[in-house]
Design a binder for these strands. Structure first.
Length: 316
DNA sequence: AAGTCGGGGCA
DNA sequence: TGCCCAGACTT
């Protein structure tokens, strides 16, 4: 038995679904996974052009696995969260090694891949393999929060109740379930939006608990200040990565740090962090012979950052 | 459960 | 300016 919310949303999806390339008939399971990773915390409009170029260049896991990490990070460009690019390549290599280059077909195996969490594993099951899965992203959470719970916005972190509601709604058979997952996400992206929801265009407006209650504003939760952008480590890290993407030769620490905002402490902290994350490589660690020979073995990334003679670049 | 991690577009 | 965007991972 289908939940009353399901049929109207499926019918709406048939007419309103966007024509996205990772939904095309010629899509591959790997292409779907790539899209899901790129879409993590990133709007569709910014992902689409980059996804097209990416899949043209590296159509299969084997193609990406063989590429140099530096080229992968350059292609990732300014999509944001470049650690995703690193993990995507690790994921490609894991697929080649563990699964003979074919994306696995069970949720547990997908979940075990680098960069693939609860949401992405479920999404790949549904959208790449056409299977029933409980796909819960920010769009689904907002739609169900409004339609079922009657709240303007979902709680800060995913609750058991939300997961239970979401699971209850997913139809039993694979085909209908996978279409439902895509449809309810699309509804959240196009109609039941965070800012100004278009309830007049919503196929389940009559059933929506939030709308029937008069669209009350979000229950004033203790407003936690979001981290600002200007002057943050995230901005400085981003600037360092931008410099290295643009450079076709190794860059001396002095030159690199001079091109980046922030005070000395922050810039060096960020560079050390990028080294630890594997997003930056120290290409020529010309460490000075230390006084104690025993200390030579303890040299770590922080020591490298303090040495101005070191050259930095994207990892090979 | 809370922090960290990019970047851009829009009200 | 603040908020939001098909989250994952570490602590």
């Amino acid at each position: 038995m289908l939940h009353p919310l399901v049929p109207p949303v499926l019918a709406w999806f048939d007419t309103a679904a966007r024509d996205l390339p990772w939904r095309a008939a010629d899509r591959t399971p790997w292409g779907v996974l790539v899209s899901e990773v790129m879409l993590q915390q990133t709007p569709v409009a910014r992902v689409e052009p980059l996804w097209r170029r990416w899949m043209m260049r590296w159509p299969t896991p084997a193609d990406l696995a063989e590429e140099s990490t530096a080229e992968v990070l350059r292609a990732w460009d300014r999509l944001g969260y470049p650690r995703r690019a690193l993990r995507l390549q690790e994921c490609a290599r894991a697929v080649v090694e563990r699964h003979d280059g074919e994306l696995p077909r069970t949720e547990a195996e997908l979940l075990a891949l680098p960069g693939v969490g609860t949401y992405t594993a479920a999404a790949v099951m549904a959208f790449a393999h056409g299977r029933r899965a409980v796909v819960v992203d920010t769009n689904v959470r907002r739609v169900l929060s409004r339609a079922i719970a009657g709240d303007a916005l979902p709680p800060p972190s995913l609750t058991r109740g939300e997961l239970r509601d979401a699971a209850t709604l997913v139809p039993d058979d694979d085909g209908t379930a996978s279409r439902w997952s895509a449809a309810v996400m699309e509804l959240g992206a196009l109609v039941c939006t965070a800012r100004s929801p278009r309830c007049d265009a919503c196929p389940v407006a009559e059933q929506c608990a939030w709308r029937r209650a008069g669209r009350p504003p979000d229950a004033l939760a203790p407003v936690r200040r979001r981290q600002a952008w200007h002057g943050t480590d995230r901005q400085v890290r981003g600037r360092i990565m931008a410099e290295l993407r643009a450079a076709d030769h190794p860059v001396p620490a002095e030159v690199l740090l001079a091109a980046v905002p922030g005070d000395e402490t922050q810039r060096r902290r960020c560079l050390a962090g990028l080294l630890a994350d594997g997003l930056v490589a120290a290409l020529e660690p010309l460490r000075r012979p230390s006084a104690g020979a025993a200390d030579a073995e303890d040299a770590d990334d922080d020591a490298a950052v303090r040495d101005d003679a070191v050259l930095y670049g994207l990892p090979r």
